[in-house]
Simulated scan of single mutants.
Amino acid sequence: QRPLPCRTLRYVPAELEDKVVPDAEVLRTLLAVFRALFANALPRQRDVLAALPEPVRSKYQDLLSAQPRGAPVLGFTPQDVLYQTLGFSVARAASSLAAAGGVFVAAGRAPRGAVVGMYPGTVYQKYEPIFFQSIGNPFIFRCLDGVLIDGNDKGISKVVYRSCNGRDRLGPLRMSDSTWLTSEMQNPLAVGQYVNNCSNDRPANVCYQELDVPTGFPVELKQYLPNTTYSCAQQGPLRCVVLVALRDVGQGEELFSNYYTVVS
Rank of each mutant, 00 (worst) to 15 (best):
T8D: 07
R10F: 14
V12Y: 14
D23A: 03
V26D: 00
L27P: 07
P43G: 03
L52W: 00
P53V: 05
K59V: 08
L64F: 15
G70D: 03
V73L: 01
F76E: 06
P78Y: 15
D80Q: 09
Y83Q: 06
G87Q: 07
G87E: 02
G87D: 10
A91V: 03
A93H: 02
A94P: 07
A94R: 15
S96L: 14
V103F: 00
V123C: 05
Y124I: 04
S134T: 09
S134A: 13
I135Q: 14
L148R: 14
I149L: 02
G151W: 04
R162Y: 10
S163L: 14
D168G: 05
L173G: 00
R174C: 06
T179N: 06
L181T: 10
E184I: 12
N187C: 13
N196S: 14
S199N: 15
S199V: 08
C207K: 09
V213R: 10
G216L: 01
V219L: 00
V219G: 02
L221I: 02
Q223L: 13
Y224Q: 15
Y230H: 11
Q234F: 00
R239P: 12
C240G: 08
D248Y: 12
V249Q: 01
Q251K: 13
F256V: 12
S257R: 12
N258V: 08
Y260D: 05
V262I: 01
